[in-house]
């Protein structure tokens, strides 16, 4: 869904034939922002559900791992930003490297989430011997859903970054026209911002 929308805006240039390229770009940008706005309501509803079901209760999670993947994701925003500014200056080489870096950091993040899942001390089934009480199970439900939805966005973002990277290395895009890259990077920033809310909600609220 995200893939379609972000790229969709990226290439919408045939319909409204009377639009100047500048206006096209502006319209695309607003469309993309509205798309983020709409997505943030999905994330927001899950975020709210977490507090509705659990208050500020929190199960044990690996704080160190959480911190590391958060830093990794934030760092990837920096590299993404570098790629965008490099494109604007027409520095294709730097843009390529920065995109590659972003992709790698994104993959590290996704793997980190997968690892977190595999070591989680809460499951989805009640069980006396594993000390799984209702509270653990709801937390599991909320945790897996929220991180899962977010990770799905990260993975789709990585996919788009890879596409952008390949196209860039094949000579597509230019200093003047690189909406395909800009939109992907905006999307990446958006996914980062979501994590800025999700990380404290899942890792830090209980202090």
């Amino acid at each position: 869904m995200a893939v379609i929308a972000a790229h969709g805006h990226g290439v919408e240039s045939h319909g409204a034939s009377h639009m100047s390229p500048e206006k096209r770009l502006r319209v695309n940008r607003v469309g993309l922002w509205l798309f983020f706005f709409s997505e943030s309501i999905i994330f927001g509803l899950l975020f709210t559900s977490r507090f509705f079901l659990l208050g500020t209760h929190q199960e044990h999670v690996d704080q160190f791992l959480g911190l590391v993947i958060t830093i990794v994701l934030l760092a990837s925003s920096v590299t993404a930003y570098t790629a965008e500014t490099a494109m604007e200056k027409g520095n294709r080489k730097l843009a390529q490297w920065a995109l590659l870096g972003t992709i790698l950091l994104g993959v590290v993040f996704a793997v980190g989430v997968g690892f977190e899942w595999s070591v989680a001390e809460f499951g989805l089934k009640l069980s006396e011997e594993h000390h799984q009480e209702p509270q653990n199970v709801v937390f599991g439900t909320v945790f897996f859903t929220m991180t899962g939805l977010h990770a799905a966005h990260v993975v789709s973002g990585v996919g788009m970054l890879v596409l952008a990277f390949i196209m860039l290395s094949r000579g597509h895009f230019s200093k003047e026209s690189h909406w395909g890259i800009s939109s992907t990077i905006m999307y990446w920033h958006f996914v980062d911002v979501v994590w800025v809310f999700y990380y404290p909600a899942l890792y830090l609220v209980a202090g």
Binding site: I42, S49, F52, L53, V137, T141, T145
Partner: peptide, 29 residues
């Protein structure tokens, strides 16, 4: 519209992934 989608995603996850959003016994509501 996301509200309907999120609500149904939760139902679907309860159904196919064993989540417990709406299972009172497992702490859902």
């Amino acid at each position: 519209t996301q509200g309907f989608a999120v609500a149904l995603i939760m139902v679907t996850l309860d159904r196919i992934a064993g989540m417990g959003f709406f299972d009172a016994e497992r702490g859902g509501d």
